[in-house]
Design a protein around this nucleic acid. Structure first.
Lengths: 123, 123
DNA sequence: TTGTATGCAAAGCGTTTGCAGTGAT
DNA sequence: ATCACTGCAAACGCTTTGCATACAA
């Protein structure tokens, strides 16, 4: 990403405005309102560059296509709403989970996904 | 699955012998030793029928293709080895994680994935 | 004999890549 | 004027589906 383009700006803006992890498809749709006619290859190429540059992080949820969000520095988890299928950040964490693993296994990292209904859908 | 076939038997045997979740590809390779020439469509169709019949469960790990294991009735999690890329069951659980979610969110279920080195790779 | 299950090949879906053309510098 | 970035379309890897054949019942 050496040059600033209308498409690149639209893509980053879309993600920054979302405040939750977005699918490539959602990013394409959001960016298309700022930059009509934008192609999916451009979205994927920009996402890839932004992830490699450390500006975005990839959110892989079980059985789901990858989502992308502005990179947080702090450890966090995710909540997947069963009703609207949106994903939200969870800034809390139960802490050390090393004791869960079988004997002889070394735990370096963990990921937690919560499932249920988000505040908007509960209403 | 109304009829018992050599291929179906080979597929179920492969999964039962593994004692860990297997990729479709791994199931194909394992079943091929019992039933040479078995096609991947057969593996996918059998897996699908077994999952729908409740004999197998699907293990979705973040960023990974689905794996399949004999359905356990009890709640458990998974450990993904960073070195050999195999996945193992973790029969322990930190318990209720409802308090992690933001206010107004209802948690119904959770999944935990541990990452690190398995006992065999630690050596 | 009947019709389900199989194997092959084609189609789908999300993502990546090749290439010629566009546009930021 | 460069050459990085874009859009289109083809290619990819994994999974599913269509169809004629094989084989369990």
């Amino acid at each position: 990403m050496e040059r600033i383009t209308k498409q690149g700006t639209a893509i980053l803006n879309a993600i920054q405005k979302a405040h939750r992890p977005l699918l490539a498809q959602e990013i394409l749709e959001a960016a298309a309102s700022d930059s009509p006619g934008i192609g999916q290859a451009t979205v994927y190429r920009n996402i890839k560059a932004l992830v490699e540059g450390g500006l975005l992080s990839t959110v892989h949820l079980p059985g789901e296509n990858p989502r992308f969000e502005v990179a947080h520095l702090h450890h966090h988890h995710h909540f997947h709403c069963n009703l609207c299928n949106k994903v939200f950040d969870v800034h809390d964490c139960p802490g050390d989970l090393k004791q869960l693993a079988p004997a002889g296994f070394q735990v370096e990292r963990h990921e937690i996904t919560l499932y249920g209904s988000c505040a908007a859908c509960v209403k």
